[in-house]
Amino acid sequence: MKKLAGIVSILMLLLAVGCSSQSSSNAGETNENGEWSPTQPIEITAPAGPGGGWDTTARMVSQVFEQEEIIDQRLPVVNKAGGGGAIGWAYIAGKKESPYHLFVASPPLVLVPLNGQSEYDHEDFTPIANVIADYGAFVVKADAKWDNLNELFEDMKKDPASVSVIGTSSPGSMDHMQFVKIAKAAGVDVAKIKYLSDPDAGGLTAVLNGSVDVYTTGVAETIEQVKAGKIKVLGITSEERLEGEVLEDFPTAKEQGIDETFVNWRGFFGPKDMDPAAVKFYEEKFKELNESPAWDEIRKKYGWGELYMNSEEYSEFLKTEAESMKTLLDELGLAR
């Protein structure tokens, strides 16, 4: 019995040693003009499990790239869930310089590291292109006493503890920060905001049954409830009013005299020090994707807004984004 166990173990180990020595170092082709093109499948990582926003975006992008033959390679989607994204980022960070690994990201890539929950932040990756933008909405029950953001913030300035705010994610993450960013610009003492989180998406329920006053969420989630007259949207975080039925009725914070915005951006990154020729290749392909009718259709289906940025614009954007978030988190005592 013992002998058998030994033999099987040794067999397994031998196989591992024999095989791990061969590593792939195929970096693709760069022709004399400095143009790069892929020669093997490109792996897109969704740093979350199947079914969520990151996963959906990755799968849709992969599908359009393949079906519209924008990129002449397979683009399998790989899920690396855990740590609010941190596990996936660590995985990509280990793929140094590889031009065959992309991943999808959004504000948590900035926020999670600032909260001290990931050792890698956006500067450890190469921004390639942003494709989607969403905006935040602040919602109250239809019969609530506030009719606009100023009335709400006036009450919060007098007594921050009198108003409770709920969002899906924990303090220091997106739902919380989009509210804090706007409230701060309106002059509210943001450290005293009473924020609750409900990861099971119970925020809307809590506002509807009156347990909590304000729900901070994404614009798209509010439309149907507004139509049914159950809730009202006090303000949204975009620069200008959005287009579309119902959507166009939502007032921005800006037009209410609060000079602040928040973008829930979503785009693609590669490992650090990716070959500039490869970055250029992807940049163009994402531009092509962004302009394709197939992608437009998908964007409409999911209610995603358009926001294309190329690599350079993207890194500038991220820099200012990270700075403003850092200031806010410091003030909240959440930066670690």
Binding site: G84, A90, S118, E119, S170, P171, L196
Partner: peptide
């Protein structure tokens, strides 16, 4: 894991795999 109400990571020993 991360405490949803405060964002504090509890008993994770600095291991990102335990955050969720």
């Amino acid at each position: 894991g991360i405490d949803s109400q405060t964002g504090t990571s509890r008993f994770t020993f600095g291991n990102a795999n335990l955050l969720e």
